[in-house]
Design a protein around this nucleic acid. Sequence first.
DNA 1: TAAAAAAATTAAGGTATCTTAAGAAAACTT
DNA 2: AAGTTTTCTTAAGATACCTTAATTTTTTTA
Lengths: 197, 197
Amino acid sequence: MIAKEDMYISLIENIKELVTVSEKDISLIMDSFKPKALAKKDILLFKGDTSNHMRFIIEGCLRSYYINEEGHEYIVQFGIRNWWINDLFSYLTKTPAQYFIQALQPTTILQIHRDDLDKLFIQVPVMERFFRIKMERAYVANLNRTVKSMSETSESRYLNFIKTHRDIEQNVPQYMVASYLGITPEHLSTIRKNLHQ
Amino acid sequence: MIAKEDMYISLIENIKELVTVSEKDISLIMDSFKPKALAKKDILLFKGDTSNHMRFIIEGCLRSYYINEEGHEYIVQFGIRNWWINDLFSYLTKTPAQYFIQALQPTTILQIHRDDLDKLFIQVPVMERFFRIKMERAYVANLNRTVKSMSETSESRYLNFIKTHRDIEQNVPQYMVASYLGITPEHLSTIRKNLHQ
DNA sequence: TAAAAAAATTAAGGTATCTTAAGAAAACTT
DNA sequence: AAGTTTTCTTAAGATACCTTAATTTTTTTA
């Protein structure tokens, strides 16, 4: 459990990694973001609802996932502390979300409503730059995921995942890692068996 | 062939779709972007070189592609008129490009050097917002590609591609469409045969 | 317009991954 | 601690897609 005073520290640190903000800016930012606590398995965003907030994870673990017509689940993204998570298309276009977002552990987030963020962009223009850089990085990371999923075997993608995301691997069941990698849990299980021999 | 005066019109229109710019802003923008012409098959960016420009396509068609250790090619992105194309990771981090960018048709682009864009962000701050929104959209589009590649059959992805990107399909060989979709040209050929029966 | 190069097709055999189903192990709940 | 639920494993059979290789078609070049 995190004290309310401490909660905003990681958000401000996250912003300060990319842009310079004054004390005045900081208090405007802190006033705009509201905390929200989630129990394990709580759904933060339902498919079909509109996402109206940008969300920063203070503590815990979440997943965003897609369910197709046949009822199969596909994990779009994981999120842990100091990550941002959203259905960005829904947020940007005010259309019904395509994805669910669910807490996989007890989780605390700080979220800002779209209207407040639009105000913040005017009051603290450097936040434009902050989100531009965040978006650039998210885009690059996802494009890399696309290329790797085309060019590498599932075994190599799994090895890379556990190497670079051990913190996530320890917080989510194995079948969700499989889903994120685009393979079945049974297949991941056989990959792991082959690795250990 | 496009007259020099007309070339900047599509760039300015592209910017005006998302943000409001003054006449002063427009002339600053126009001064910063330089035209470049490419013949079919010309390489705009080589793997290993650093990308130092943001690039807007006036006319023609390009692809960015990745070659893995075994020498297999994977198409990361296509670009046609009014699209932006780059190896963004290389540009942002000043590291050697992972991808090649090549003209697939005679092509004209407008490009801005990183140093000039950094200046432009200060002179015309609304350009921060422009690129933030562009990045948001690019991120969302690519995440959608990721989810579709996990959840849909290659036939359905092909049908969706020719429906939504007929302009690209008509400018690139079929084996490149296959590469973009993450399948072999032979397999795309059999998909097409099955469709026509 | 003939020759050369590039692109697309076809088909056979191979492999990675999926589906289904059942049982074992681990993690929660009362 | 026992019961329940969730997660992981194993294995057999099915299938989507790949590899290889040869042939045909289309496009480009001289």
